[in-house]
Design a protein around this nucleic acid. Structure first.
Lengths: 364, 364
DNA sequence: GGACCCTTGGGATACGGTTCCGGCACGGAC
DNA sequence: GTCCGTGCCGGAACCGTATCCCAAGGGTCC
């Protein structure tokens, strides 16, 4: 006499309950449900009826323990509410769903400690891939830390994907999906320069953030290409938020009021800058031009609509998942990939011209 | 001679590998790691060293199968990139993390079929709670469908939480976290009326969406309270996006151009409306006033900053998680909760006054 | 000094599936 | 009529961890 729970009432139904009630073996039920083994029509019908009656679903933990299981991708993001990375997450999630993968998300809140915790948590969960979103801080420790993550995950049969972060140096088993910050900023700055602007307030973002560094470099290169002196005094670093945009413009209006355009590191920063200009009685773009970066929905909701650099965030997410899915596919085949194959994909950006830029007026 | 994998190289290390290498039993390793049983310092040190050497993490699937395991909450959302619900998700995730819970998200893309699939998927995953975000369509089938979800989850020891949706009728085991659409709209409309507006263009949202219905009701009630006739001809339904706001205002400018204010069902819709007004050469708020609903970051990034109804989205997320966590706590105690206890929490909203409303000009 | 208690470690079992392997019935070929 | 394949099905061994139960050892109290 089985001592296990007799009245199968508490908790969820097990495969054994189904088997018992259908008068078949556990193995048969499993086969009917996974459908990877021939089963008679009669048996299938009988089992499926009980499954419906009991509203049975298989226990994913048990299944993945026994070998089967749904592939899972973990998305680690510092802030869900940031529009740009929400789009990446959407891309990953969409592509995952398409392939029958499951997505888990965790938010790091920019806390390196929490990042570590989460990577380990995902390792416990047996995630087949861990996607890390967001600009990385340029600490020396970063490379080591990420390399360790990459190797840990690789050893566990998982894989690290860095999105919107700089690639890792050396032979580290990680995939990087990146976009060209520098070229984007170069193109945007060139656009301003060709419109006739010479004195441009540059708000690249946080000085320690690699994306901000790239955007600043691109801008500077454009000035060089145009033979226009680049005034370091017109560069103001600060966080990627509207408050910084607002404050930076206010300060600049006092200290270096001769600028005719603002090259913002982010659409959000541009929004803040626009507010500050309006507050000072300046019109956009008649008196001052503004450009953004990212091309999030906000850009086209502002008035005037923002001329900005389009970054294919959602596409990046899709690409990220495709990269790991393909890799997984490939691994199953004959030759085992050499473990340390680092992959680095760079996606292009382009300028989206809207209404926030006009040639500078003669005088200010 | 153990026939299991001898070179522990492929795949992740198991607890057995650790035990073997540390020269102790599997049980001891488990105890060291879970820390809920006294262990000698010597043993702890030896085990921990091996754990670090092997970079071992426990298999979450095995753990949760064996009874332990991390509590998990599933967040089902139709679109991650929607700012309002991203904030709810953030609230849930934050509160979950605080309690050591894991969060899984899935996006439904407004597809009922996919919603069903996801709920079952989460049931498989053994989610301790499933949080469903987003306005519900007012189909007849909705109540039945959700009731079925609720009972299925309840039977499996899980729990359904509806956020921003109408509560379920009858004795259904589900928790609802809601906010008062009607009161919010009532307050907002009253604000416009007290500023002197009489002809107000109302853009509540999709007619089938319960939130839109509530917001419309609130507006109408305010008009009644002020003794101002409510003109159904000034109501235009449509999706919650900026394009609808734009199109609706454009159409209204042709057909009923005497309105002096726009009561938008969403900040996004308000943004679109604002664009259309500007495009027609009208100033905001000098010529036409605008109000929104939701108070997402966009509201304060527009120019002028949008007067809108604040909805405590992130708070709702936190409350949602707290509700299920408490319930879980309570269940462990003596008296088993009656299974069909439906809970319904309503959070308040309030008007945030910014710069987009002014008394109407005499003539138009 | 002996009995008893308390601390600590190990063996065994259960969790809910998947899958390998053996068996049984049936049918066709000789 | 026997032999052998073929097609379905059931029994049982695992997947990796937690925990119950028992044994051994040392300390304490009488």
């Amino acid at each position: 006499m089985s001592q296990r729970r007799t009245t199968g009432d508490a908790g969820r139904a097990t495969i054994r309950d189904v088997a018992e009630r259908a008068g078949v073996s556990v193995a048969s039920v499993s086969r009917v449900l996974s459908g990877n083994y021939p089963v008679s029509e009669e048996l299938r019908r009988r089992v499926m009826k009980v499954v419906r009656d009991l509203d049975y679903v298989t226990n994913a933990h048990a299944r993945s323990l026994a070998g089967g299981g749904t592939p899972t991708v973990a998305i680690l993001i510092n802030n869900i509410t940031g529009a740009a990375f929400a789009h990446v997450a959407k891309g990953v999630e969409g592509a995952a769903t398409l392939r029958g993968w499951l997505s888990i998300v965790g938010t790091t809140g920019d806390d390196p400690e929490r990042e570590l915790t989460l990577v380990n948590l995902m390792r416990q969960q047996g995630a087949d891939a861990v996607v890390l979103l967001g600009g990385a801080y340029d600490y020396d420790e970063y490379q080591l830390r990420m390399a360790r993550f990459a190797r840990s995950l690789d050893a566990a049969g998982s894989h690290l994907v860095l999105v919107g972060r700089p690639p890792l140096e050396g032979d580290v088993p990680a995939t990087t999906i990146d976009y060209d910050n520098e070229s984007g900023a170069y193109a945007m700055a060139s656009y301003l320069l060709s419109a006739g602007h010479r004195r441009v307030l540059v708000l690249p973002g946080p000085a320690e953030l690699t994306t901000a560094q790239g955007r600043l470099r691109g801008a500077r290169r454009a000035f060089e290409a145009y033979g226009v002196p680049f005034d370091q005094g017109l560069v103001r670093h600060g966080p990627y938020d509207d408050e910084h945009g607002y404050a930076a413009v206010q300060a600049a209006l006092h200290e270096t009021p001769d600028f005719t355009a603002v090259l913002a590191g982010t659409d959000i920063v541009a929004a803040g800058a626009m507010q500050a200009l309006r507050g000072a009685g300046l019109r956009v773009p008649d008196d001052v031009s503004i450009t953004g970066f990212d091309d999030i929905p906000l850009a086209s909701q502002l008035t005037p609509q923002l001329t900005t650099v389009h970054v294919p965030y959602e596409e990046m997410g899709r690409v990220a998942l495709r990269a790991v899915a393909d890799r997984r596919q490939g691994t199953g085949g004959g030759a085992r990939r050499k473990s340390g194959d680092a992959e680095h994909l760079v996606l292009g950006t382009h300028v989206v011209v809207r209404d926030s830029v006009r040639p500078p007026k003669r005088q200010r």
